[in-house]
Design a protein around this nucleic acid. Structure first.
Lengths: 196, 196
DNA sequence: TTAATAATAGAACACTCGTTCATTATACAT
DNA sequence: ATGTATAATGAACGAGTGTTCTATTATTAA
């Protein structure tokens, strides 16, 4: 009766994600995207509706990807905290080269979007970061339940602390891409206050 | 023989800084700037040359302002480390409301500018952050010399650590503007590893 | 083979971008 | 008061923005 799209939707979103990740929302033009994903405006707008909506799909794709990495790390680790630590190391050390940016795309977006000009996208970004925090808190709760952390610990507080550390390290890595010192700082996250 | 500019150059830079700080480099248009600083294109371009150059002056103004705050905090504190801690508290807690952004303008710029599209500005930003790190290292060296920290400490490493913490906290504050927890985290910077 | 349907291409739209420039206004030296 | 140098104005430029739309192409059911 009709014909199907000849491009792979997921592949297109992946390419769009990488461009947005590198250049940011404002720094990426629809013309940039057209060439990067090799689609003409008609197809893009028929499929995604708008630049904003494509960005929304891109950043959610990025978040899902990151969530998968976290789950993989937990699955291949003996305890919640060692899984968490592996995740942070993979996220920061392994992402230093070859990726669109060593920084977190979600944090980059949190940084550039404004309440006045991009409220809807900003809310989406905050929602995603809040979900991540809850996910981290859940893992920390698992660690408490498994006696890997003592019961006096506040899971939400430690999750906040982890977010601060990850954000700080990934951003700092853009300035000073030094694997040795980043590695050292990651180890220290789990030994000092507030973890012990 | 001629007439002098009737606007105050510093005042104009201040207004430009606040707009760039809030909206970022790409999010701020020359039209936005024209209305914010109340100057027509001719005057702006005669005075500052280009959008890029105005941004450069703005971010250096921001850095100088932040440097002054740091110096004030050191001057009114008994020791280097207490001065540093006061600085961080003022920077983060007091900046939560009323400022164009609770995030650091320099970090926002580091986040949005790219090697491919804005190399010159990005290099300026990295230079500024590197200067800040050296400044922090100097203060930590003072702390070591004053026996506030023991001599085994590596000033540059602690300075990096401080940068990570400040970047992480200020960015996190945009997500979760919670003075109590931010305050707690600031206190913890100086009690856990790698400081003690 | 034909008719129906949807995907695609790419020209074009209205608008905004950073920037330039001819003009007008202003202030000081003579 | 007048001439001169400079500051300020704001219309205008070409290029780029996000988006729309029509014509074309491709696919599948009948």
């Amino acid at each position: 009766m009709s014909k199907n799209a000849k491009f792979d939707r997921t592949e297109v979103i992946e390419k769009a994600t990488n461009l947005y990740w590198e250049k940011g929302y404002h720094g990426t033009s629809m013309r940039n995207l057209q060439t990067a994903i090799d689609l003409r405006p008609g197809s893009i707008y028929a499929t995604f509706g708008s630049k904003d909506n494509l960005f929304k799909e891109a950043i959610n794709h990025y978040a899902a990807q990151t969530g998968n990495l976290l789950q993989d790390c937990l699955d291949q680790s003996a305890t919640p905290l060692t899984g968490l630590k592996l995740f942070i190391k993979k996220l920061i050390i392994d992402n230093l080269d070859g990726k669109p940016s060593c920084m977190c795309m979600i944090v980059k977006s949190l940084s550039e979007l404004t309440e006045s000009d991009n409220k809807e996208l900003l809310d989406e970004v905050k929602k995603i970061l809040s979900n991540i925090e809850n996910r981290l808190a859940g893992i920390i709760t698992d660690a408490i339940d498994a006696d890997e952390l003592d019961q006096s610990k506040d899971a939400m507080e430690l999750a906040s602390y982890l977010q601060v550390q990850i954000i700080g390290l990934r951003t700092y890595a853009r300035l000073n891409n030094n694997k040795e010192i980043v590695n050292k700082f990651i180890d220290q996250i789990f030994v000092g206050a507030p973890f012990h």
